[in-house]
């Protein structure tokens, strides 16, 4: 007998069976039929609501626990590890960032007088670089990319974690080398990170980080001798005017991220 020429359970009976409201006779009849009919099993699956499904998942989980599964449960640590990468990488990044800032503070800048210190002009790159490293260490996984949390949510958590860690680290380094402007690097640093997020859906976050870093380094190069362009130096050195400029850039980047937040969670063309 083929699937086509046999009878199928009627929808009312199937719904009664699914909700547990069928009489014994109807319930048994439907159940017996279901064991042999793939068509009606599929129809039954469609009668379940999302609430039924999550109840089913919960029951399956409880049964698994009763079966002795999940004896050594996967902890939330696994998720944290997946989101942020291995903890030792973070320790390494913090130590590197602090050391780099303090060392750059004592390297003499070119004599032109346009640049205050290497530390001041390079510190804003630290969070950006760290976001790139976290992405490089964490993900090359197409399976993770198509999850509901794999888009904007993941990008925001990672960027926030980087800022929480780099903020105090770099500021501490700047205070250590002295010369004032301990937290002045923060505004361009934040603007660059937000810029990377804003470019993320179009070019990918890692590539955005690399591109913005290259752009910033190009400006530093132009501001240094021999060209020593004063306008370039003004952009990267903290002052009242540049602070307003970077605050504006930060705001604009946040607006762009908010405006295209949907694009983080849509199928893309980036591999």
């Amino acid at each position: 007998m083929t699937q086509q020429d046999r009878w199928h359970a009627d929808t009312v009976a199937l719904r009664q069976y699914a909700t547990g409201t069928a009489t014994d006779a109807v319930g048994w009849s439907v159940e017996t039929h279901l064991t042999g009919c793939i068509v009606c099993r599929a129809r039954l699956a469609h009668l379940f609501t999302d609430a039924d499904r999550s109840e089913l998942s919960r029951l399956r989980c409880e049964l698994s626990v009763a079966d002795g599964l999940a004896q050594s449960p996967a902890s939330p640590r696994a998720a944290l590890r997946g989101v942020l990468g291995p903890w030792w990488a973070w320790i390494g990044l913090v130590v590197t960032a602090f050391t780099a800032v303090t060392l750059l503070g004592v390297v003499p800048t070119p004599q032109s007088g346009l640049l205050t210190s290497w530390a001041h002009v390079l510190a804003p790159l630290v969070p950006l670089g760290m976001v790139a490293v976290v992405y490089a260490l964490a993900d090359r996984d197409p399976a993770a990319a198509v999850t509901p949390r794999g888009g904007l949510e993941l990008a925001l958590i990672r960027t926030a974690a980087v800022l929480v860690v780099t903020g105090p680290t770099v500021t501490a380094g700047m205070v250590t080398i002295g010369g004032g402007g301990g937290a002045a690097w923060l505004l361009p640093g934040l603007a660059l990170c937000a810029g990377a997020l804003a470019l993320g859906p179009s070019v990918g976050i890692e590539r955005a980080c690399v591109g913005l870093t290259a752009l910033w380094l190009a400006v530093v190069a132009v501001a240094s001798p021999p060209s020593g362009l004063a306008s370039a130096a003004a952009v990267i050195q903290p002052s009242g005017v540049t602070n307003a400029l970077w605050a504006g850039a930060l705001f604009a980047a946040i607006v762009v991220v908010a405006a295209q937040r949907e694009r983080f969670d849509l199928p893309g063309r980036l591999s």
């Binding site: 698994s64 626990v65 599964l69 999940a70 996967a74 939330p76 997946g82 993770a144």
Partner: peptide
Amino acid sequence: AYLAWLKKVPSRDIPPAVDR
């Protein structure tokens, strides 16, 4: 477990779901 979290499996259900 990481993928389960990304897929929004409720965190209470992650350990048994992973083992299953």
